[in-house]
Simulated scan of single mutants.
Amino acid sequence: MDHHVSEAIARPDLIDLGGGLACLRFESMKVASALAAVRHLLESGVVRPGDTLMDSSSGIYAYGLALAAHRYGLRCHIIGSTTIDHPLRLQLAVLGATLEQMPPSDDLGLDQNRRVQRVREVLREHPEYHWMRQYHDVIHGLGYRAVAEQIRKDVGEEPLTLVGGVGSGASTGALARYLREGDPATPLVGVQPFGSVTFASDHVTDPQIIIAGIGSSIPFGNVDHTLYDTLHWTGFDAALAGSVDLLRRHAIFAGLSTGAAYLVARWEARTGRRRVVFVSADTGHRYVDSVFARHEEARPVADLSPREIDDPAGLKPPWCRMDWDRRPAPEQAVHREG
């Protein structure tokens, strides 16, 4: 029996979709990350009950950190993206977390840079706050060991390919590390939006979209580029098609980054050599108006295919694929402290 709802939310469901596809479905993925990270900080004495945890978030990490703080008797302060919606704002308030939300913006870079600047201002005002550094601290990968063990328990020794949004690198990166303890050859396929610095698509814009959870305009310290075998970059139209098809075909109501991962996983599963597990990070509720209300616009996923490239300089919407081959980070994606 669980002792707090966060423990139940941290466990995903693994759903067999047929055709060599499986969906690793989280209600809110970052709960697993935040819960394990906070538990580690308490056990190591870095923080104590009553302390204040702070971080920047585009949405689901804010919820995860608020739940972890509630579970362990800590305070929580969030510097929030413009993408945080009304239902989440209300949940954070009732859970006792405080939220500073950035003003409306369609510019991912401006939104993230504003949040980083405000984090540093708050730390100067409150040096006693503990900055969780979800984009840089490796402790955020700890919660995915249990998830990897759950996957292996469900599928046995069957060879797998893992597909998911890159984001801070904590989720897909950590899952790949833990899965590779049993099978070092496990391929990791990362999904990125156009406009993200992480895998050098920052020179390409997609004005319709901010997939804030899987891309970034700033370098992330958690991303280990040498873990990724393949990269896909998807635009809004391609991700929308994936989200709508996933709901229509498999009845899974999930976010826009999941739609992109599903589209990519379908493509990678064509060879049939490995079962492809793709990560579904959250539900589709905050995408009702921006995505699902436009379901009639969605193109059939069978009509979509990626443009194969051998260098990020060749990136072009709506969808590109590249063999990354576990190479190091591009220069603009290297995180430097300070």
Rank of each mutant, 00 (worst) to 15 (best):
289 D>V: 08
310 D>N: 12
299 R>F: 01
281 A>W: 07
301 V>M: 13
286 R>M: 02
301 V>C: 13
304 L>M: 14
304 L>A: 03
302 A>E: 15
267 W>D: 14
306 P>A: 09
270 R>G: 03
275 R>D: 06
308 E>P: 00
266 R>T: 11
265 A>M: 08
261 A>Q: 09
268 E>S: 06
279 V>N: 04
309 I>P: 10
272 G>F: 12
291 V>G: 01
311 D>T: 15
270 R>I: 03
281 A>D: 03
291 V>T: 07
300 P>L: 12
310 D>S: 15
267 W>V: 02
277 V>N: 02
266 R>S: 05
258 T>E: 11
283 T>F: 01
308 E>W: 13
265 A>Y: 08
301 V>Y: 01
283 T>Y: 02
290 S>G: 05
271 T>D: 15
260 A>Y: 08
282 D>Q: 09
264 V>Q: 10
308 E>L: 15
262 Y>S: 02
279 V>E: 07
303 D>H: 09
294 R>F: 00
292 F>H: 11
303 D>P: 03
288 V>G: 00
277 V>A: 05
303 D>R: 11
304 L>G: 01
261 A>N: 15
286 R>I: 02
299 R>S: 10
310 D>A: 13
306 P>C: 12
290 S>N: 03
290 S>M: 05
262 Y>C: 04
289 D>F: 02
284 G>M: 09
283 T>M: 05
293 A>W: 01
311 D>P: 04
272 G>K: 10
294 R>E: 03
290 S>F: 01
270 R>H: 06
310 D>T: 15
291 V>H: 00
279 V>R: 00
277 V>Q: 05
283 T>W: 02
269 A>W: 07
280 S>A: 15
301 V>F: 02
258 T>M: 09
275 R>E: 05
309 I>D: 04
295 H>V: 00
269 A>K: 08
290 S>K: 13
273 R>I: 11
275 R>F: 07
311 D>M: 04
273 R>T: 15
293 A>V: 03
263 L>D: 06
268 E>V: 14
294 R>T: 03
273 R>C: 07
271 T>F: 05
302 A>P: 00
282 D>W: 11
307 R>L: 13
264 V>H: 06
273 R>K: 15
289 D>T: 09
276 V>C: 13
269 A>M: 09
273 R>P: 00
296 E>R: 14
309 I>C: 07
265 A>S: 11
285 H>T: 05
278 F>M: 08
259 G>Q: 10
305 S>V: 03
276 V>D: 04
265 A>C: 12
281 A>R: 00
306 P>L: 13
280 S>K: 10
306 P>N: 10
268 E>D: 05
295 H>F: 11
297 E>H: 10
280 S>H: 11
289 D>Y: 04
274 R>M: 11
289 D>C: 02
274 R>C: 04
281 A>N: 07
279 V>A: 06
302 A>W: 05
281 A>H: 13
292 F>S: 01
